[in-house]
C-alpha cells in the first residue's frame, strides 16, 4: 500500500479529556500517517460525515467518560447507513475489559484500554494494513 493511511481522530460526546487523543494523533502523524483531529464535542453524525468527507481509512474514537457503548454504536450504525463499513473503527479510553466483546460485536476493530502502550494503536494499524 503506497498511499498514506488517513485517520480521523475523533472525540464523541461531552467528554473533554483530549490529552490521550492528541498524544495518539501525534504518534500516528510521526509515523507518517495523515491525521485529521475533529476537536471536542462531536456528535456521531458529525464524525461519520467528517470521515466520509475526508475519505479516511480509519476512525479512532477517544472516550474517557465511560459512555463508549452508546457512542460506538451510533458511529457504527451511521457508517452502515452511509455504506461506509469499509472504514476501520478503533476506540481507546477508560474502557473496562468486560465491555470489549460487545464493542467488537458492533464491528469495532480494536479496543485500547487504560495502560495500553503508546504505540499499540499504531502497531495494530500497521499490521492490519499489511494483511
Amino acid at each position: 500500500m503506497n498511499r498514506k493511511l488517513r485517520i480521523l481522530m475523533a472525540k464523541p460526546g461531552l467528554d473533554g479529556h483530549d490529552r490521550g487523543a492528541k498524544v495518539i494523533a501525534r504518534t500516528f502523524r510521526d509515523a507518517g500517517m495523515e491525521v485529521v483531529y475533529t476537536g471536542l464535542h462531536q456528535t456521531p453524525e458529525q464524525i461519520v460525515a467528517g470521515a466520509i468527507q475526508e475519505s479516511v481509512d480509519v476512525i479512532a474514537l477517544s472516550i474517557l467518560s465511560g459512555a463508549h457503548m452508546s457512542a460506538c454504536r451510533k458511529v457504527m450504525q451511521g457508517l452502515a447507513q452511509k455504506g461506509a463499513e469499509d472504514i476501520t473503527v478503533i476506540v481507546g479510553g477508560t474502557i473496562l475489559e468486560q465491555d470489549i466483546p460487545e464493542l467488537k460485536a458492533m464491528g469495532v476493530a480494536e479496543v485500547f484500554t487504560p495502560g495500553a502502550p503508546l504505540e499499540a494503536g499504531l502497531d495494530f494499524l500497521r499490521k492490519q494494513s499489511q494483511s
Binding site: L14, T43, S65
Partner: peptide, 10 residues
C-alpha cells in the same frame, strides 16, 4: 439529546 448516556455518570 446530547446528555444521553451521561446523566449521573461522572
Amino acid at each position: 439529546p446530547l446528555a444521553e448516556d451521561e446523566v449521573g455518570r461522572l
